[in-house]
Design a protein around this nucleic acid. Sequence first.
DNA 1: CAAGTTACCTGACGGC
DNA 2: TGCCGTCAGGTAACTT
Length: 276
Amino acid sequence: MPELPEVEVVCQGLQPHIINRSIQDVWYSNKPLRFPFILQEAQELLLSATIISISRRAKYVLLQTNNDSFIVVHLGMTGRLGVFPAGTDKAKHDHVIFSLDNSMEFRFNDTRRFGSIRVLKCSSLPQLEDLLFKDIGVEPLEEHCTPIYLQEKAKRKTQAIKNFIMDNRIIVGVGNIYANESLFTAKIDPNRAANSLTKAEWKRLHTTIISTLRWAIECGGSTISDFINASGESGYFQANFKVYGKDGTECSICEERIQKTKIGGRATFFCGKCQK
DNA sequence: CAAGTTACCTGACGGC
DNA sequence: TGCCGTCAGGTAACTT
């Protein structure tokens, strides 16, 4: 599920439940995740530490503690974070559980284990940025992300525009769904070479990426209020998909049928008439 | 350097 | 009922 909007919503939903809570215990399933999780290290850094902030960078959830540590979570394809009363039966793919000081447990669950949890000694967000995120691109919802920036980065790129906007060294947070949706709304053919877009097209695409992500955050945010026992139900933005998973149905703008193809091995949906 | 492919995992689904 | 192939919203590490 998780692209930028989902991660943002997860952060917002978790916030009231874990801020100012201290960690009393850490449990690990011992199943390998994308990166090794060293239980002993996590315990050394986190036992009795208090979580003081939660934020998002790209598709990472960042939890800062009052003793210069960070818990950095990536949800991969199937990762979930949730808060449960202590003693709640473990779910099938629970991998890391933090016991909090209010008889609640903060849990990471991940069926496919493409996600990760890392615990690092690090005293500030800028330092963490240096450590982990030096080579990743701009946040689409922040100032640095402009049509000019994107066009400049695309100058020598002949790859499909869809792959380009999903490349997190360029711009973060845009996964397969929102790449499809943004390109549809911008009326740009996902197969176009990245360096073939005009200035006007970059402006359109930039705008639709932002509006699509914002809209999705609002949809998610409005439906997920309770993270207790809910472990990150996905929001209702799916109801607003215009092309993703809609192959064979009528385009919402013209009467053409939405087509499905593959770009970079990923399912790609588009209207052959609207998107040029 | 850019671009394309593979690998990591589990589970759902459709065809037979 | 089960077996098999295909597919899934991510991304890092390969190869070409």
